[in-house]
Computed example of a mutant assay.
Amino acid sequence: MVTKLNFSGPCTAKILIQLEGQIVAPPKAGWKAGLIWISIEYVNGLTIDGNNKGILHGQGPSWWQCPTCNRPVMLFFHSCNGLNVRNLRIRNSPRSHISIIMCDGATFSGIAINSPATSPNTDGFEIARSRNILIEDSYIKSGDDCIALNGGSFFVNATRVTCGPGHGIRSGASDQVSNIHVRNCTFIGTTNGARIKTFSETDVSVSDVTYRRFTGTSASDVAIALKCSHAGCFGLLFDQNNIVSAQPGKKTSSSCINAHGSARNTIPSVSCLK
């Protein structure tokens, strides 16, 4: 039972933290830790190894019935460079499970995140103002985005990530986001697969996006929806995609607003591209 943990540098020594048991947060009624449960700041070269048996329990069910409450993040990394987190299990966060802010060079591998589809705003990972982030060989079950990429996210790679339930992998910001690569990932029962979302009042431009070798089924008749602002989306490429209806015999379709690009060998046809 841990009320709050805060590791704060500056620190440049190579530190290894091994978790071999369960760390349990207090429930909402006993919460006194503010908006972050476990905080690590200004610590470079840190390795956290859960050894596939280290578990963080967030006591999320005691929070989820209060949508207006300021619910806390479970694991928060701020200004940590050369970070390595592996073989860790995280369950039932009140809000986001892992938050990464202003970090350069971080690898997360073998992470198992598990919260129900009904848990509100429980992003698996939320990333902002960070670069050179790798998330690999991980499983994310949540009630919100599996990975949320916010403003200032550059060179982020998600590889062999299984997502679902949840909202998929989402990039959305009023600030710049670029060089995002999602490869060999699986989405099961998610509301979206790959989604780029911008704030409607900002007219953010979206450009140079490739969707290649997406295969699967869609619960919606519209499997590919491109709703771009007046600023438009440019340089879109759809290549070797095959998304069919989850209902046998039904056809899927696409829709476009202010979308410019090309498509080849893609089902459904994206002939609406300009």
Score class of each variant (00 low, 15 high):
residue 3 T to R: 07
residue 8 S to E: 10
residue 13 A to K: 12
residue 15 I to T: 15
residue 15 I to Y: 05
residue 15 I to P: 11
residue 18 Q to I: 06
residue 21 G to C: 07
residue 22 Q to T: 10
residue 27 P to K: 02
residue 29 A to W: 00
residue 36 I to N: 15
residue 37 W to A: 01
residue 50 G to F: 04
residue 57 H to E: 15
residue 58 G to S: 08
residue 59 Q to T: 00
residue 61 P to M: 07
residue 62 S to C: 02
residue 63 W to V: 02
residue 64 W to K: 01
residue 66 C to S: 13
residue 66 C to H: 15
residue 70 N to M: 01
residue 76 F to L: 07
residue 79 S to V: 12
residue 80 C to W: 04
residue 83 L to T: 01
residue 86 R to V: 08
residue 89 R to D: 09
residue 96 S to I: 07
residue 101 I to V: 14
residue 114 N to S: 15
residue 117 A to D: 14
residue 117 A to M: 10
residue 120 P to E: 02
residue 123 D to F: 13
residue 126 E to S: 13
residue 126 E to Q: 11
residue 138 S to A: 00
residue 142 S to M: 03
residue 147 I to E: 06
residue 160 R to C: 06
residue 161 V to R: 04
residue 165 P to A: 04
residue 170 R to I: 15
residue 172 G to D: 05
residue 177 V to W: 03
residue 180 I to N: 05
residue 184 N to V: 06
residue 193 G to K: 03
residue 195 R to P: 04
residue 210 T to A: 13
residue 214 F to P: 05
residue 224 I to T: 09
residue 231 A to I: 01
residue 232 G to Y: 08
residue 232 G to D: 08
residue 243 I to W: 10
residue 246 A to I: 09
residue 251 K to W: 01
residue 255 S to D: 05
residue 256 C to G: 06
residue 257 I to N: 13
residue 268 P to R: 03
residue 272 C to I: 02
